[in-house]
C-alpha cells in the first residue's frame, strides 16, 4: 500500500507540473490582454478572461454552430454522460460478473464487445473491446502509444498519467519498472504482457480475484476493482 502511494506520487508530481504551467499561461494571457477601460474606481470589473485555449475552443464551437455542424445541446449531453454517467464502476461491474459467473466470463473472453454491449456498455466510436485476463502466469497491462485510446464505455475518461508521454513510452519499454512505480510487485515468474490500444481495439484487464473473497456478493466484489486494476497498473483489492 505504501509503495503504491509512493508510485502515484511520482505521477502526481507530473500532474502538479502541468498545473503550474497552466497558471503561468493564465497570468500571461491576462497581463497581455488589452485594457479597454481604466479599472480604478470601476465598481464592476470585467469578467475574468478565460485562457487562450479556452477562448479558441469557444470560437471553434461558435463557428461550427454557425454552420449548423454542431448542436450545443448535444455537446452538453456528451459532457454530462462522461462526467456523471460513465466511469470505472461500469468496468468493475463487468469484472465482478466475470469473477462470479463462469458463463459470463467465457462469453466475455470470447467476445467482449457483444457481452458488454448487452449490459448497455457500448462504444460510441464503434470500437471493439477485448478482455484480457490476468493469471498467475501472465499479468496484462494496457497502454496507447499512439494517443490515448481507452475503453471509454467501461472506464470513462483516462487519467492524465495514462495520457502522459512518460507512461506511453515507458509502459512498452520497461513495464516492470512502471508497475513498481505503481507499487505492483509481481512474482519473478509472472510474465508481463503489454497491450497497445488503437482507435479500433481497446482492452480491459480482468484482474485476478483476490484471495478470501469467496462469500462476497457481486456488488462487494465490484468494490474491490479499481480503475487502475483494469488498466493493469494495480491489483484488485489493493488501494488504487
Amino acid at each position: 500500500m505504501q509503495d503504491c502511494r509512493a508510485g502515484q506520487e511520482s505521477f502526481a508530481a507530473l500532474r502538479q507540473g502541468h498545473m503550474d504551467a497552466r497558471v503561468d499561461r493564465w497570468e500571461t494571457s491576462v497581463q497581455s490582454a488589452p485594457m479597454p477601460h481604466d479599472h480604478s474606481g470601476d465598481a464592476h470589473p470585467h469578467s475574468l478572461l478565460p485562457s487562450d485555449p479556452a477562448l479558441r475552443v469557444k470560437a471553434l464551437e461558435t463557428v461550427l454552430v454557425r454552420r449548423g455542424l454542431v448542436d450545443p445541446a448535444a455537446l452538453d449531453a456528451i459532457i454530462d454522460t462522461y462526467e456523471n454517467k460513465i466511469g470505472p464502476k461500469n468496468g468493475a461491474d463487468v469484472v465482478a460478473r466475470a469473477w462470479s459467473d463462469p458463463g459470463f466470463r467465457a462469453d466475455l473472453l470470447a467476445d467482449a464487445t457483444a457481452t458488454v454491449s448487452a449490459l448497455g456498455y457500448y462504444g460510441r466510436q464503434g470500437e471493439h473491446i477485448v478482455a484480457v485476463e490476468n493469471t498467475p502466469e501472465t499479468h496484462n497491462m494496457v497502454v496507447c502509444t499512439l494517443c490515448s485510446c481507452y475503453p471509454w464505455p467501461l472506464l470513462g475518461i483516462p487519467p492524465a498519467w495514462y495520457k502522459s508521454d512518460a507512461y506511453r513510452a515507458r509502459a512498452v519499454r520497461e513495464p516492470r519498472k512502471v508497475l513498481a512505480d505503481f507499487g505492483v510487485a509481481l512474482p519473478p515468474d509472472t510474465a508481463v504482457r503489454v497491450w497497445d490500444s488503437t482507435a479500433e481495439v481497446r482492452y480491459l484487464v480482468i484482474p485476478m480475484r483476490p484471495e478470501g473473497t469467496d462469500g462476497l456478493s457481486r456488488e462487494e466484489l465490484a468494490a474491490l476493482v479499481s480503475r487502475d486494476s483494469m488498466i493493469g497498473t494495480a491489483l484488485a483489492g489493493a488501494a488504487a
Binding site: P50, P53, V70, G156
Partner: peptide
Amino acid sequence: AFAEPWHAQIFALTVH
C-alpha cells in the same frame, strides 16, 4: 473526468 471545462468542451465537440 475533466480538469478544466474547456477540456470537456473540446472533447465533446470532437466526439459530436
